[in-house]
Amino acid sequence: MSENNKNLYYLDELSDYKVASDDSDVRGWEVKDADNRTVGRVDGLLANKEAKRVVYLDIEVDKSLIEDGHEVYNKSANEGTHGFVNKDGENHLIIPIGLVRLDEENEKVLTDEINHGTFTKTKRFSKGAKLDRQYEVTVFKNYFPEKGLNDDELEDENFYERQEFKNSSDNR
């Protein structure tokens, strides 16, 4: 992937980006799902330069999530079948920032919208991998299958203006 087509950057890669002084740096915090089960720990923050903010949390998934297995994704028959199988070392996934809330007192990141089963089925990646828009779209569709979004809706220039990418501090 060329640098020009790159949508996401780890905050550590961007010298001019920092966690805002009034926001918590959640790296290292435990992540809990909608059923209060451990998903993993926040390993990194992913920013989009055009949106000029963090849009995803990079989660190193808990061993229990990996052990629960993984189902193959299928696209519609007219698009062919595409399987995504997690390989050894693929132990990271992303969560849009707008799907989490912070328990600052206990240093936990909580999501009320995604359960353990959904996280188990989500395509993972290896630490530090360059993530393309296709991966984002795949994950987004996995988290929100009921929305029936098509690829065009998920690939336009306003992609990061969706509510799923707004954190609570955006509403202050």
Rank of each mutant, 00 (worst) to 15 (best):
R37G: 10
T38W: 05
T38A: 14
T38E: 12
V39G: 06
G40D: 05
D43S: 15
D43A: 15
D43R: 12
L46P: 00
A47Y: 03
A47T: 12
E50K: 14
A51F: 06
A51E: 08
R53L: 06
R53V: 05
V54H: 05
V54I: 14
V55H: 01
V55D: 01
Y56M: 04
I59K: 05
I59E: 05
I59H: 05
K63P: 03
K63F: 08
K63S: 13
L65I: 14
L65W: 02
I66A: 03
D68K: 13
D68L: 10
H70R: 08
H70D: 07
H70L: 03
E71S: 09
E71Y: 07
E71D: 13
V72S: 13
Y73L: 14
Y73C: 07
N74Q: 13
K75D: 15
K75V: 12
S76F: 04
A77K: 09
N78K: 13
N78Q: 11
E79R: 12
T81L: 14
H82K: 15
H82Q: 12
G83D: 11
G83N: 12
F84T: 10
F84H: 15
N86A: 11
N86C: 12
K87I: 05
K87F: 06
G89I: 00
N91C: 04
N91F: 01
L93C: 12
L93I: 11
I94C: 07
I95K: 02
P96C: 04
P96F: 03
G98R: 04
V100R: 00
V100H: 01
R101Y: 14
L102N: 08
D103R: 08
E104H: 10
E104I: 09
E105Y: 14
N106W: 10
N106T: 09
E107N: 15
E107F: 11
V109R: 03
V109P: 02
V109S: 05
T111R: 02
T111V: 05
D112K: 09
D112H: 04
N115F: 00
N115Q: 02
H116W: 15
T118Q: 04
T118A: 03
F119A: 01
K121F: 01
T122C: 11
K123Q: 15
K123H: 14
R124C: 01
R124D: 01
F125S: 03
S126L: 04
S126K: 13
K127T: 06
G128F: 01
G128Y: 01
A129V: 04
A129M: 05
L131Y: 02
D132Q: 08
R133E: 11
V137P: 06
V137F: 08
F140G: 02
F140Y: 14
N142C: 12
Y143M: 05
P145N: 00
P145C: 00
P145E: 00
P145G: 00
K147W: 10
G148K: 08
L149M: 13
N150D: 15
D151H: 11
D152N: 14
E153V: 07
E153F: 10
L154C: 06
L154H: 09
E155L: 14
D156M: 06
N158M: 10
F159T: 05
F159G: 01
